[in-house]
């Protein structure tokens, strides 16, 4: 009987001491091979699109210029219920998009003190929902979204729907978060000033 090179040699598994060693080595390498396959998947699947997208958005942000959104900061400082969406929706979204994490929080300087914690809460809660469509805003924490999105990709489903819904729900959530935090801040500020008054 001829043994062709193309045939798989059916050598017995090594046994004994060296067999155990060989198996251990194989298992050990396999452990990292699994990781390496995953890494290649991420590099090939995510990085190319990410680089092109990041470059385009970075260029756009540079072209538009940051100083133009400072106008909204001044608008957002106004009292009254009609300015809530500006303060806790428009301003956080624009600051996160243009200034990115962590510089977006500097936009809080246009607001009165009592709104600052709520604005921070609102802005910081948007640095992840934006990742699905605009990863430039927070590239260091990409995997909050991409980790879960990778599972959807594995199933062969599209990510667009998830990304858009994540963004939209995120917008609703930051508006609610801003309003709730503003109420709590107002109470705490009032209590702090009362206790200070009692002490004095």
């Amino acid at each position: 009987m001829y043994v062709l090179a193309a045939e798989t040699p059916n050598a017995e598994d090594p046994t004994g001491f060296f067999g155990v060693l060989a198996h251990a080595a194989e298992w050990f390498i396999g452990l990292f091979q699994a990781g390496a396959d995953n890494f290649v998947g991420l590099l090939v699947g995510i990085i190319p699109l990410l680089i092109v997208l990041l470059t385009a958005v970075n260029a756009l942000v540079r072209a538009i210029g940051i100083e133009r959104i400072e106008r909204f900061g001044e608008m957002a400082a106004r009292p009254g219920i009609q300015w809530y969406p500006v303060r806790y929706l428009l301003l956080p979204v624009l600051s996160v998009f243009f200034l990115t994490n962590p510089m977006c929080y500097t936009m809080g300087r246009f607001l009165p003190e009592k709104y600052k914690p709520a604005f921070y809460d609102s802005a910081v809660s948007f640095v992840h929902p934006i990742l699905g469509l605009f990863p430039h805003a927070n590239p260091g924490e990409l995997f909050v979204y991409y980790g879960i999105a990778a599972g959807i990709t594995t199933l062969g489903l599209g990510l667009g729907d998830l990304a858009v819904r994540f963004l939209l729900v995120g917008m609703v959530v930051i508006l609610i978060r801003g309003i709730v935090t503003e109420l709590i801040t107002a109470r705490l500020l009032a209590r702090n000033t009362r206790t200070e008054g009692a002490l004095a």
Binding site: P102, Y105, T106, G108, R109, E113, K116, P117, Y120
Partner: peptide, 8 residues
Amino acid sequence: VGLALGEA
């Protein structure tokens, strides 16, 4: 830190 960035 975030509040300090907003000059609170």
